[in-house]
Amino acid sequence: MSMALLYAGSGIILFSIGLHALLVRRHLLRKILAANIMGSGVFMVFIAMGARGDAGVADPVPQAMVLTGIVVSLCFTAVAIVLAVRINHLTGCTTLAIDEESAID
C-alpha cells in the first residue's frame, strides 16, 4: 500500500511540474514536452492504484487502459508537432501569439 501511495504521489508531482511548464514556458515544443510529462504523471497514478495488491502484479485493466493511453498520447504529440511546424511555417514564430493584433494573417 505504501509503495502504491509513493508512486501515486510522484505521479501527482509529475503532473503539476508538467502543468506548470505548460502554462509558463513559451516554446511550442516545450509545451508539447510538458503535456507529455503531465500524461506520464496521470499514467503513474493510474498504474499505482492498480498495483495496490500485495502480489506485486498490477491489475490488468488499468494496464490495458494505460497502454491505450500511451498510444493516444503519441498521436497527440505527432499532431501537435505537425501543427507547431505549420504555425512556424505560416507566421515564422515558434511561440504562441499573446496579444490580439498578433492573430495569424
Binding site: 513559451r26 516554446h27 507547431a84 512556424n88 514564430c93 515558434t94 511561440t95 493584433e101 498578433s102
Partner: peptide, 10 residues
C-alpha cells in the same frame, strides 16, 4: 524543423 530559438514577430 522548428529550431530551438523562441522566435516571435511581435
Amino acid at each position: 524543423r522548428l529550431g530551438s530559438a523562441e522566435r516571435c514577430r511581435f
